[in-house]
């Protein structure tokens, strides 16, 4: 069996997910035993015509992005969105909360007409996405898990439970109990609770669990001494496109 041809593409993002892959170090060599990397702007100049697997980093935020993502989808067997921007719209999507004109002007000033921009959307808003790897940046163990699964021809497990699950499995002290803010109870796991494990709070970079009780989450954060405004703002940092957050009402004082 020939090795799958893998390509990486970046859209609107900080490219941190791609850099994260280069940090795989020892595993990077084992990975190259499994796949042929045919396009990867961060690391090489080659370009290919088609790919068995295309990894997409970044959100769709300009008309040219749209054209490019359709083109990549046509050439790709399996398409995987990589990181919060690609999966959720991510931090970029916060601009959708403001008037487009105002955003354009704030960023480009008088040159704003040179840079056409559209509301930020995740990759899945335009093309069929086969698998999603969340996180800001994406988690490398999960990236390897998905890649191994694709090589073996199996559906990778993508978890839809809260970060709390992984935190409790690791017996980490609860950061909420330490007086810190935390979105772990409603945010998607798969990161091995890396932030709480290292004494940081969960910012919800992997988005919310499906069916999330956002009203309950706001109530929870208020109980721990945070205002509803702060709770909503932090929930929106990565998940501003999640309708549940905008519709959420905290019915408890």
């Amino acid at each position: 069996m020939s090795k799958p041809r893998v390509a990486f593409f970046d859209f609107t993002s900080c490219e941190g997910c791609q850099l994260n892959k280069l940090n795989l170090e020892n595993d990077l060599l084992s990975l190259l035993e499994l796949v042929d990397i045919v396009e990867f702007r961060e690391a090489m100049d080659d370009k290919a015509e088609n790919y068995d697997v295309a990894f997409i980093e970044g959100s769709i935020s300009t008309p040219s992005c749209v054209k490019r993502i359709y083109d990549i989808r046509r050439r790709a067997g399996v398409l995987v969105s990589l990181g919060s921007c690609a999966v959720l719209g991510g931090v970029n999507a916060m601009k959708n909360l403001h008037p487009a004109d105002w955003v354009q002007e704030a960023v480009y000033g008088d040159d704003k007409y040179l840079f056409p921009s559209i509301p930020v959307q995740p990759v899945s808003a335009y093309v069929k996405v086969d698998y999603e790897i969340r996180g800001c940046p994406m988690s490398t163990p999960e990236f390897l898990h998905v890649l191994k699964s694709i090589v073996l021809g199996r559906k990778p497990e993508i978890f839809d439970h809260a970060v709390c699950v992984e935190c409790k499995l690791h017996e980490n002290e609860c950061v909420l109990d330490k007086g810190m803010f935390c979105l772990g109870p409603v945010s998607r796991a798969g990161c091995e609770a890396i932030c709480p494990e290292n004494g940081q709070y969960c910012t919800g970079c992997r988005g919310l669990i499906s069916n999330a009780n956002v009203g309950g989450a706001i109530h929870m954060l208020k109980r721990h001494g945070f205002s509803e405004q702060e709770a909503k703002k932090k929930l929106q940092m990565y998940s501003s496109l999640n309708k549940l957050i905008n519709e959420a009402e905290c019915r408890h004082a």
Partner: peptide, 14 residues
């Protein structure tokens, strides 16, 4: 209780 529970699973896991 469902109105305030966030379904994080802490109660089960611990």
């Amino acid at each position: 209780y469902a109105e305030i529970c966030v379904g994080c699973g802490t109660c089960n896991l611990l």
